[in-house]
Design a protein around this nucleic acid. Structure first.
Length: 264
DNA sequence: AAGGCAGCCTGTAAGC
DNA sequence: TGCTTACAGGCTGCCT
């Protein structure tokens, strides 16, 4: 749910709100999701906030990092004043300017870990290329595909160790816009199809970042809702933009929408 | 080795 | 009407 565009949006907004501030307290936290050692290093200054794949990384000035993953239902809120405790609160960080950074999670799948730079490096090294970076070239995409000839294309797109940041919704949307059936094996792809797919990955993610993500179910970024949900073609739809009936199947354990007419 | 899938969790929607 | 079941989904870890 929060995929690359949503996480990118959250990170940009968090950076503008909390960078250079001090965390002075941690309260009301759920120790099953939040690393309790964070309390031991307070107060600590926030040097920066950045994203890698779907992870949010808060860089501290003591050489450590807060590594956060929202999974499906996690979100952050920042309160300059008028903070009030709401359901699903996982952690409440008090900052030195009197503001509050609150982290919530309905399904409690996420986590906030305290890691050293070495530990961070180990985690991040398992992630694949950033699809919006200049490292993600058509040549690189071809190399990845070549290694996974037997894989189903949708599973490939969602494999974080190959390309970092694409989840169920954007995989579905990219495949529709590329005219490719999500069940197809990579070995069957022609080079024009690969090029089209490559271009759509960049285009869809870039546009979704500009729209501040998609608000589906309970995703909200720090300042409100996204706008890309209005551009979705087949995800959660009954009919595709050309008026064909959309089919829903289970692929790799995930609900997968596609148009059998438009996608071959 | 690598692919497949249960489990984690809880709210919502569908089904009986 | 009210209970039960299915589903949503990213990722880890276990199993084959």
């Amino acid at each position: 749910m929060p995929e690359l565009p949503e996480v990118e949006t959250i990170v940009n907004q968090l950076r503008s709100k909390i960078k250079s501030k001090m965390i002075i307290s941690l309260e009301d936290f759920d120790s099953s999701m939040v690393d309790t050692r964070i309390k031991d290093i307070l107060p600590v200054k926030i040097e920066n906030v950045f994203r890698r794949g779907k992870s949010i990384i808060i860089e501290l000035n003591n050489g450590h990092y807060l590594l956060t993953h929202l999974r499906m239902t996690g979100y952050f809120q920042h309160f300059n004043k008028n903070y009030s405790k709401e359901p699903f609160l996982v952690a409440k960080f008090g900052l030195n300017d009197g503001s509050v950074l609150a982290h919530y999670s309905i399904r409690k799948f996420g986590s906030i870990k305290l890691v050293s730079s070495n530990e961070l490096e180990v985690v991040l090294s398992k992630l694949g290329v950033e699809p919006l970076s200049k490292q993600f070239t058509l040549e690189h995409f071809n190399e990845l595909l070549l290694k996974k000839q037997k894989s189903v294309i949708k599973s490939f797109l969602m494999d974080q160790s190959l390309i970092a940041g694409i989840g169920n919704i954007y995989a579905i949307e990219v495949l529709y816009l590329s005219g490719i059936d999500p069940q197809r094996k990579i070995i069957s792809f022609s080079s024009p199809e690969i090029k089209k797919l490559y271009n759509q990955i960049k285009k869809v993610l870039q546009l979704a970042v500009e729209k501040k993500g998609s608000t589906v179910d309970n995703y909200v970024h720090v300042e409100g809702s996204g706008g890309y949900q209005n551009l979705l073609t087949v995800y959660g739809k009954k009919v595709c933009p050309k008026g064909h009936e959309v089919k829903k199947i289970n692929l790799g354990g995930r609900g997968t929408y596609y148009c059998p007419e438009c996608q071959r």
